[in-house]
Design a protein around this nucleic acid. Sequence first.
DNA 1: CAGCATCCAGTATGATACTG
DNA 2: CAGTATCATACTGGATGCTG
Lengths: 158, 158
Amino acid sequence: MKPGNIQITTPSPVRAELAHKFANWQTRKPDGFVCPVRDALDRIGDKWTMLVLIALADASMRFSELHRAVPNISKRMLTQTLRELERDGLVLRRVFPTKPPSVEYELTDLGCTLFEPVGTLVRWVEQSHGPIQAARQRFDAAAPSARGGQVILATDKQ
Amino acid sequence: MKPGNIQITTPSPVRAELAHKFANWQTRKPDGFVCPVRDALDRIGDKWTMLVLIALADASMRFSELHRAVPNISKRMLTQTLRELERDGLVLRRVFPTKPPSVEYELTDLGCTLFEPVGTLVRWVEQSHGPIQAARQRFDAAAPSARGGQVILATDKQ
DNA sequence: CAGCATCCAGTATGATACTG
DNA sequence: CAGTATCATACTGGATGCTG
């Protein structure tokens, strides 16, 4: 096929699987193209959803507990995020008609299943954090002017 | 503590692990709070990164091949996405000084490692797609006016 | 071919104030 | 307490035109 003598040696079977699925998603519809990955990322990829979910991993919580547990989230965003999660059946909302009212949020079974993929993702980040940082430094150091970065070019060039 | 007699029965160990980590991320810094999950989602959670990555799972590709392979992406976004990936060391960019120039993109070893978490995520989406759809329909059908949805209120009361 | 620069619109999020 | 409503803004991404 192509010159295979590069240092790409990962024989991951997942890779082929993904490539195949990707092809399928494409050939479906010439205009629509709804890919499950995009679908997933639209759901959990926003700024707060994962944080709320993980906060709820510990225990079910009331609104204001969550508000305290998730750093810097606004009530507006917390409400919105919880509504989405409730709508998707990942979180259960239970209202207790006390006075003043109290509301508890907890993960559903479906919501709990999210922890497998998320756990995998977290482990990946923890492992690749170092290499990525290194790669960035290399990149930023190597091509300062090539990308319009505001760098003070001295007389020397790397 | 709280009424625990609900149908939440998942005994996932990952759950406790995540909860614990979350607590750690929080107690770190009162202001910063950089959570690896957010970090990861910032990296792969945007509109195109995953698509490009998966497109490259099949084989290394030239710029215009990618442009064709990823549906509806603009050159602007493709370039931008590839730069980020290159910077993070997930993708390797190789320029061939032909005329006109040609550039090949391929996954690095580090980039390939992403397929494990992503594969897990994809599998999760495929499995939970049905339940989520169902939950949504239930939710939307059950509480049309309760969520500020634009429902036609006969008496015009708000 | 493989980009980059510019402009612009839509959306995601934040700040603030008000309510049952 | 647990939200809702409104306004302000920052950022993302799309369209377009220009280059070597």
